[in-house]
């Protein structure tokens, strides 16, 4: 049930994200709710459920938005693993911690994308783009992350209640 509903849920979250991104920021900054979802999975779900979630969301985001198939799957899987390792060592409930981790994860995403473009594909991206795209994106996504976390927590409770029934 969980793995079946995951496909639909991931797709809906992405549609919402892509549409909001276009409506609110006119295509300049991505409101990456999917990133927050992957971090949430790292902090709260077990490794199988979380990794499948990160994989599916990355797959959908790649198919919708990416020019390099596989890049968001790798980024989201990496972020999931880092979040998982950190969640095993510290209590990741604090809002400031969540915001900080989300900020760093968005930067990590930027670094991986730059690495793939500059080193593997030999395409020169402007370094200013890093500041103009990833910095505001990291800022906005990290600010909304505690609220989105609490929403995901409610969804998770609903899913668990449904499963127990």
């Amino acid at each position: 049930m969980y793995f079946l509903s995951l496909w639909l849920f991931s797709f809906l979250v992405l549609i919402l994200q892509v549409t909001l991104f276009d409506l609110l920021f006119h295509g300049k900054i991505a409101l990456e709710i999917t990133m927050i979802l992957v971090i949430y999975a790292g902090f709260h779900l077990d490794i199988t459920r979380g990794s499948v979630l990160a994989f599916i969301i990355g797959l959908f985001y790649d198919s919708m938005a990416s020019m390099v198939p596989g890049i968001f799957v790798v980024v989201y899987m990496l972020i999931f693993f880092i979040a998982k390792v950190i969640a095993d060592k510290v209590r990741a409930e604090n809002a400031v911690f969540i915001m900080g981790f989300t900020f760093m994860s968005t930067f990590l995403e930027g670094i991986v994308i730059f690495f793939v473009y500059e080193v593997l594909l030999d395409i020169n991206l402007s370094y200013l783009l890093f500041l103009k795209v990833f910095f505001p994106q990291a800022l906005i996504v990290s600010v909304i992350s505690p609220v989105v976390f609490s929403l995901f927590r409610r969804v998770e409770v609903l899913v668990r209640v449904g499963e127990s029934k």
Binding site: I47, G58, P69, G70, V73, M77
Partner: peptide, 29 residues
């Protein structure tokens, strides 16, 4: 059981890396 769960996650990560490598090596697929 926990090792099996970890193995699933690692396999998914490997698939992701293979997908990315394939798309970098074959850009006009």
């Amino acid at each position: 059981k926990s090792r099996r769960k970890l193995a699933v996650a690692i396999i998914l990560l490997l698939i992701a890396v293979v997908m990315l490598t394939f798309s970098i090596l074959n850009p006009s697929q």
